[in-house]
């Protein structure tokens, strides 16, 4: 099921000029907004910046944290949609790998 989400709906490329600090602060110079995120969110964003694939990210998280697949799936989906809404992830590009 995992692949279903990743396939069509969301672009997962972080916009180029987004600033990410190690303490979890995110700054978007084009909109002027700042955000804070928790450690696990920060990890995911950093992986996105490194343009890791979904599979890689999933494996990393599942290995590192006490969570089951279904929960993570749900939360990840939710998180990515938030990133979209806050325009951290650009909505233009359709390409997906």
């Amino acid at each position: 099921m995992w692949h279903l989400f990743t396939k069509s709906f969301f672009n997962m490329k972080i916009r180029k000029n987004i600033a990410v600090s190690d303490s979890g602060f995110i700054f978007n110079p084009s909109t002027g907004d700042s955000f804070s995120t928790n450690p696990i969110g920060l990890e995911i964003i950093q992986m996105l910046k490194e343009e890791k694939s979904k599979e890689e990210m999933r494996k990393t998280i599942l290995q590192k944290y006490q969570v089951d697949e279904a929960t993570f799936e749900k939360d990840f989906y939710d998180f990515v949609s938030m990133l979209h809404q806050t325009q951290i992830i650009s909505q233009d590009e359709e390409k997906k790998n």
Binding site: T37, I40, K64, Q66, T71, F76, D78, F79
Partner: peptide, 15 residues
Amino acid sequence: SKLPYERPVIQRLNT
């Protein structure tokens, strides 16, 4: 041993 899990969140800051 695995770390405890918390779901990822992002929150806009109001200055």
